[in-house]
Amino acid sequence: MTVKTHKTKPPRKRRGGFGSKQEQRFAYLMLLPALALVLIFRVIPLIWGFFLSLTNVDTLGNGDWVGFANYARAANDPTFQDSLINTVILLATLPIWVMLPMLLAILIHQGVPGGKFYRAVYFFPAVLSSVIIGAIFSVVLRYDGSLNNMLGAVGIDAIDWLGSSSNALGSLIAVQLWSTFGMGVLIFMSGLATVPDDIIEAARIDGAGFWQRLFLVIVPSLRPIIEFVAVVTTIGVLTSMFGLIYVLTGGGPGTSTTLPEFLIWLEQGKLNRPGYAAAISMILFVMMGGIAWMQVRIMSRNTNL
């Protein structure tokens, strides 16, 4: 018995088709500008920053190779240690940063009266620069500011919102939260649009109340969005609070509002120690790299949901 075999022809290569060397070259050519930008503005400065962190050069370029002395210095620097503690406190408030916009987005999605108005109002601070927000809140929160005047009018003693170590970081976090939560609301609203209405309706018909629908149907459906907002918010608060700190507290009182990014500016811009600033930058980069790695893992896991 002979078996007829069909000699299959290899697929004819289309002229300029996907995978041809010519097309690959073209693809690389198209990628080149983006790769060059990443290389020039990200990779090379990163490598340069690492080597800078191994020196004690000043801003005039005078200095010597000191190895890992700047990293040892950071390990023993009380100001840097305080900035890390402040970072941990900041990260501990993460549930608020996630839960508040989520709850507001759910309320708007559930059709509270004036929902569209609130959506616009919540988002408005996100278009303001941190310096402008800082200037506004320095008038509101200073000891003789409008908030204390308002409290005084109802018989409550003035509170030193920005000038006391026990209040300053909390005030700063509250202002940053106010200025950024609108973006979280928008992200959650996009996520809510993907929750099928028929599931919510089915739960309602089955007798689930508002809170049961919220915690047993809506929140589990939003899990990928919650994780995404958590990671993006974490990166945001660690790298974008400089303007607020600069305008509102200058890192004080003491070191109570000093975060690593502010300390980097202080060491480079005011204390003329770019090598040490570069070492702190590298440590912050490693911290951020760890969070970015978490983000990639979360995102890739959620692609299967």
Partner: peptide, 18 residues
């Protein structure tokens, strides 16, 4: 400058009694 910066911090803490 770095010593002056530390005094600024300490002056704030002393002022608060912290």
């Amino acid at each position: 400058p770095s010593v002056l910066e530390e005094w600024k911090r300490q002056s704030q803490l002393l002022l608060n009694g912290e």
